[in-house]
């Protein structure tokens, strides 16, 4: 008996070692660089005060402003797209489906270049816009464009799964109870797909906050205008490591906050729905 339990303990230990070791290694792999930023940053003179320096707050404001506009545009404009893709059958649907997913696999730099070619000053659209006094490249609008291009597919994919999971007979029953189609959508379909949509929205938003390549190509890195946090980090890195570390620390804190808040939010949501 004693022998048996001891042998079981040994085998449990072996499994713990086999499974646990990779987990520990992975946590170190992810955690060490993050810890290194904090450690090096703390070593810099006046680090704490630098966290709220204008050089941090300015790109932070731009990042929040642009990414929140991006998020709003995506939620409003891409919800119908997701619904159509989830529910309607039409010729060429598979092609549309693949095109919508394309930005997730396309290198952002290529996306930025493409936007520059399409909407840039030398393009026909760009010249037409110029004629009415609008210049897209190197503007805050361009930052939003780049962010939407890169992050919208994350929302669309999640929302589509959400809509697909809503039982059709619920919508049909709602119709027979006298609710017109639009009301059925807002009172039945949307609430039931909301959990999935919130997950997608958060993913899109964080992707927009971190956007770098497409923004750099299409909107440039103009301090005070188009320079978001990731671009500011790159710019500061060339001359001021302390500022770089301060920017990175703030961005890390935001990511962590988003992660925690989302988890709590979705947990409450699952109780509600």
């Amino acid at each position: 008996m004693a022998f048996q339990s001891r042998s079981r303990k040994v085998s449990e230990l072996r499994w713990a070692a086999l499974g646990g070791l990779p987990v520990v290694l992975f946590l170190l792999f992810v955690g060490l660089p993050l810890a290194a930023i904090l450690a090096r940053g703390a070593g810099e003179p006046g680090f704490i005060s630098r966290l709220t320096d204008a050089s941090v707050l300015q790109p932070l404001r731009i990042t929040f402003a642009t990414s929140l506009i991006t998020l709003a545009v995506i939620c409003v404009a891409c919800t119908p797209v997701s619904y159509v893709l989830a529910r309607k059958r039409f010729p060429g649907r598979d092609i549309v489906d693949s095109l919508v997913e394309l930005p997730t696999v396309l290198p952002p730099v290529v996306a930025g270049l493409g936007m520059l070619m399409a909407f840039g000053q030398r393009s026909e659209i760009g010249q037409a816009l110029e004629a009415i006094g609008i210049s897209l490249p190197f503007s805050m609008t361009a930052v939003v464009f780049a962010q939407i291009f890169v992050s919208a597919p994350f929302f669309i994919r999640a929302a589509k799964i959400g809509f697909e999971s809503v039982d059709r007979s619920l919508e049909e029953t709602a119709l027979t109870l006298g609710a017109p189609p639009l009301q059925v959508f807002f009172r039945i379909t949307l609430p039931l797909a909301s959990r999935s949509m919130i997950g997608g929205a958060v993913l899109s938003w964080t992707r927009a906050i971190g956007e770098f390549g497409a923004t750099l190509m299409f909107a440039g890195s103009l301090a005070g205008r188009t320079q978001t946090m990731p671009l500011a980090i790159m710019a500061a890195f060339e001359h001021d490591l302390g500022a770089t570390l301060a920017l990175a620390t703030v961005l890390m804190a935001i990511s962590l906050a988003v992660l925690v808040v989302t988890r709590l939010l979705l947990r409450r949501w699952s109780v509600l729905t």
């Binding site: 039982d167 049909e172 709602a174 027979t176």
Partner: peptide, 12 residues
């Protein structure tokens, strides 16, 4: 009034 086979109550 319509009652489908699986009662179709709104879960939320």
């Amino acid at each position: 009034g319509y009652m489908p086979q699986q009662y179709a109550l709104f879960p939320h």
